[in-house]
Simulated assay, not measured.
Amino acid sequence: MKTRTTAALLFSALLAGPALAATCDVEIEGSDAMQFNKTSIAVPASCKQFTVKLKHVGKMPKAAMGHNWVLSKASDVQGAAADGIAAGLDKAYVKPGDARVIAHSKVIGGGETDTVSFDVAKLKAGESYAWFCSFPGHASLMKGTLSLVK
């Protein structure tokens, strides 16, 4: 009986193997408490596109407590965030045409979602990337790191 149970567990583990394959998407939640539910994202180099689904789990409107998801090199965060604030809500707090911004979502309010995809070829192995919310005053708390992994 013990051998049969062990064999069944091994067989189940083998079948589950493909389910453990790299995924090319992630869901991130932002709240009215100015927090994301994740602090890091690993992007598999095998992905051609990577998709981020941003979900605002709070109740406040975007004009009061909006959130977005902005990706840049870690060294560009401060400048991209500062220039984004000046761009305003109607531009999703991202300076139009900002080459430092690799990808960004729109600004969403409570109960809303947005999805953004980007070409993984834009990422370079060994480079430090960061993501943040560029809504005024949020970037210092609502941030994380992104890495390209094999």
Rank of each mutant, 00 (worst) to 15 (best):
E29F: 14
S75D: 15
T51F: 06
T51V: 08
G79S: 15
A19L: 15
V107H: 06
E112H: 06
F36T: 05
M60Q: 15
A8Q: 12
L20W: 05
A80Q: 00
G84F: 03
S105D: 04
M34D: 15
V43Q: 01
N37G: 10
A22K: 00
D83F: 02
F50M: 09
I85C: 09
K38S: 08
N68L: 00
G17F: 04
A82P: 00
Y93A: 01
V107N: 03
P96C: 05
I102H: 05
E112G: 00
D83T: 13
A99K: 12
P61Y: 04
T5D: 12
G111Q: 07
H104F: 09
K91I: 01
Q78E: 14
D83K: 05
S31N: 02
K48N: 14
S31E: 03
V94F: 02
A22Q: 07
G110K: 10
S72V: 11
A87N: 05
T3E: 10
L10D: 13
R100E: 14
A22T: 06
T6M: 14
S31R: 06
A92F: 05
A42G: 13
I41N: 08
K38I: 15
L20H: 03
V26G: 07
A63L: 09
A45Y: 04
G109T: 10
V52W: 01
L54Q: 09
A21S: 10
V77P: 04
G88Y: 01
Q78L: 15
A86W: 02
D32L: 02
A81D: 10
S75L: 08
K38D: 13
T6C: 11
K59D: 14
M60V: 10
P61H: 03
K59P: 05
A103Q: 12
T23Q: 14
G58E: 08
H56V: 04
G30V: 07
M65R: 06
A74F: 04
V70N: 07
A16L: 11
V77L: 13
L71M: 11
D25Y: 09
K62G: 02
S72G: 11
L15H: 09
G84W: 00
G58K: 03
A8R: 02
P61L: 03
G30M: 00
A92P: 00
A7H: 04
A16S: 10
H104I: 06
P61T: 04
L14I: 08
V26Y: 05
A33F: 12
F11D: 08
H67C: 05
A81Q: 05
S12K: 00
G88H: 02
P96F: 04
T23L: 09
V70S: 04
G79I: 07
G111P: 05
V94W: 02
D25W: 06
K55R: 09
A87Q: 00
G111R: 11
